[in-house]
């Protein structure tokens, strides 16, 4: 396959970036998208040019490290797929492909296609956990009875890998789906009830402090989420927050 790539290049966080055109030939349709970028980088290194920086880790669709806005969509045109699981057979020979970093004020570009998603980590640190006594007398979580429906709902929410595709897809750069999933996974379990009030308040406050936009229910996040996190998680977040604030 021969492809025409338009890729965002940016020297560092302070520099002004721009789209740069590349042409790449001999791409196997069975390569993953990241392998295609690897091939391009080998080509650039051979030409004594600066390779393109991009995030990746497990390349198995579970770590949430890879990102990339591909042809205007987070993780590309496939549904329920991360960039590392996207294959070149989804494109046609001669295609022009736009590759950009996820864009949001809370996701500043570090270099080229690499973004700083530590805002998600700070939101998690604000309340996305349950406090467990690890003094040696820890009670196994499985000893607490949980009904099947609640367990399944909590598990579905916990499937969020925190990649940031929801923010990238949203016209408002809202992190509501991510925060909603992290709040919901505990809201549906008995272990999460003790800190439910502070969790909802602190995580929502941190989300706003990071500069994410608000949710206008467009549903883009749900469609683009590689893990199929449902929009209903946002309704749960809203309900948990209102419950928390009325409790005081």
């Amino acid at each position: 396959m021969k492809l025409f790539l338009k890729i965002w290049r940016q020297e560092n966080a302070q520099a002004k970036g721009q789209m740069v055109d590349y042409t790449i030939d001999g791409i196997d349709p069975n390569m993953s998208f990241l392998e295609m970028l690897d091939v391009l980088n080998e080509q650039l290194v051979a030409e004594n040019k600066e390779p393109i920086e991009f995030d990746h880790d497990c390349r198995e669709g579970i770590c949430g490290t890879c990102s990339l806005q591909i042809n205007g969509q987070p993780h590309g045109p496939d549904r329920l797929t991360t960039t590392c699981q996207l294959h070149m057979r989804k494109f046609k020979d001669g295609d022009t492909i736009y590759i950009e970093p996820f864009r949001a004020k809370a996701f500043p570009v570090v270099k080229d296609l690499v973004i700083d998603r530590s805002s998600f980590e700070r939101i998690q640190q604000a309340g996305g956990y349950v406090s467990v006594n690890t003094s040696g007398n820890t009670i196994d979580a499985n000893t607490i009875p949980v009904d099947k429906e609640s367990a399944d709902t909590a598990f579905d929410s916990a499937a969020c890998i925190g990649c940031g595709a929801c923010v990238a897809a949203c016209k408002n750069a809202s992190a509501a789906l991510f925060v909603g999933a992290k709040i919901s996974q505990f809201a549906n379990l008995p272990q999460g009830q003790v800190e439910a009030t502070q969790r909802a308040i602190n995580m929502v406050n941190q989300m706003d402090a990071e500069g994410f936009g608000s949710c206008t229910n467009t549903g883009a996040c749900e469609i683009e989420c590689p893990k199929g996190i449902k929009l209903t998680n946002i309704a749960t977040m809203n309900r948990e927050y209102i419950k928390a604030t009325t409790k005081g």
Binding site: G72, P77, Y98, K171, N172, S174, G213, T216, I223, E224
Partner: peptide, 20 residues
């Protein structure tokens, strides 16, 4: 506020593929 949340926009943003 929402417009401030994305100060630099995309070169290509395919909004119609996932929203009405």
């Amino acid at each position: 506020n929402n417009r401030k949340a994305r100060p630099i926009g995309y070169e290509k943003f395919d909004k119609s593929s996932n929203t009405t």
